[in-house]
Deep mutational scan, measured.
Amino acid sequence: MKGKVVSYLAAKKYGFIQGDDGESYFLHFSELLDKKDEGKLVKGSMVHFDPTPTPKGLAAKAISLPLE
């Protein structure tokens, strides 16, 4: 699924993505496929991810940034 980063707290390594389906997904650095892309996780960045339901809500897994 595609989505847009709505927040990312680099110090805490987490944030949120708004998916194309309108839902909010929890984003964690550990799910970023290329850790070098962390600096690109800023508000408004477009990402691809696997939407995954968890006991705490919806989460983004296997997060990647589109090729530039």
Rank of each mutant, 00 (worst) to 15 (best):
M1A: 07
S24F: 15
L67K: 14
M1Q: 07
F26D: 02
E31H: 07
G44H: 05
A59V: 15
G57L: 03
L67Q: 13
K40R: 13
L9F: 15
Y14D: 02
K56G: 08
F49C: 02
A59C: 11
E68D: 12
S24I: 15
F16G: 02
D50E: 13
H48L: 15
L32H: 02
K2M: 11
K4N: 07
G19V: 03
T52I: 13
H28W: 06
Y14S: 05
K2P: 06
A11D: 12
G15Q: 00
G39L: 13
L32C: 02
K36S: 13
L65F: 14
V47K: 00
H28P: 05
D20K: 06
S45Q: 15
V5F: 01
G57D: 01
G39I: 14
K35R: 09
V42L: 10
K61H: 11
S64K: 11
S24T: 15
G19Y: 02
G44A: 04
G44M: 04
Y14F: 10
V42F: 10
S30R: 10
K4V: 14
F49V: 01
V42M: 10
L27V: 05
Y8S: 02
P51W: 09
K4I: 15
K56P: 04
A10V: 13
K43T: 10
F26H: 04
L9I: 15
F16C: 07
D34E: 08
E23R: 15
K4P: 02
E31L: 04
K4M: 12
H48Y: 14
Q18T: 10
V5D: 01
V42P: 02
D34R: 06
G22L: 05
G15Y: 03
T54K: 05
E68C: 11
G3V: 02
H48T: 13
K12T: 10
A62K: 15
V47C: 03
V42D: 05
K43G: 07
P55H: 10
K56Y: 12
S7P: 00
T54S: 08
E31C: 07
V47E: 01
D37T: 07
G44S: 04
V5P: 02
F29G: 04
G15S: 01
T54F: 05
L33I: 12
E23Y: 14
K36I: 07
K40C: 08
K61P: 02
G22H: 05
F16Y: 08
K2D: 06
D20E: 13
K12H: 10
L58E: 03
L65R: 05
G39D: 11
P66N: 14
S64Y: 15
F26V: 04
D21R: 04
V5M: 04
K2Y: 12
K56R: 12
K43Q: 09
E31Q: 11
L58K: 09
K36L: 09
K35L: 07
I63A: 04
E38K: 05
E38A: 10
L27Q: 01
H28M: 07
L27T: 03
L9Y: 15
S45N: 10
P66T: 14
Q18D: 09
I17P: 01
K12I: 06
F49Y: 05
A59T: 11
T52N: 11
P53E: 13
K4L: 12
A60R: 00
L27N: 00
K2H: 11
S45C: 14
K13C: 07
K2I: 10
K56A: 09
S30I: 08
L58T: 04
G19Q: 00
P53D: 11
F29L: 10
P66H: 15
A10G: 08
M1S: 06
K35S: 09
E23M: 14
A60W: 01
I17Y: 00
K36G: 13
L65P: 03
G22M: 06
E23K: 14
K61M: 10
G15T: 02
A62T: 07
Y8M: 04
P51C: 06
G22P: 00
I17N: 00
S45A: 15
K40L: 09
D50F: 15
L32E: 00
V6W: 08
L27P: 01
V6I: 14
D21N: 08
G44D: 07
E31K: 05
D20T: 09
A60V: 01
K4C: 11
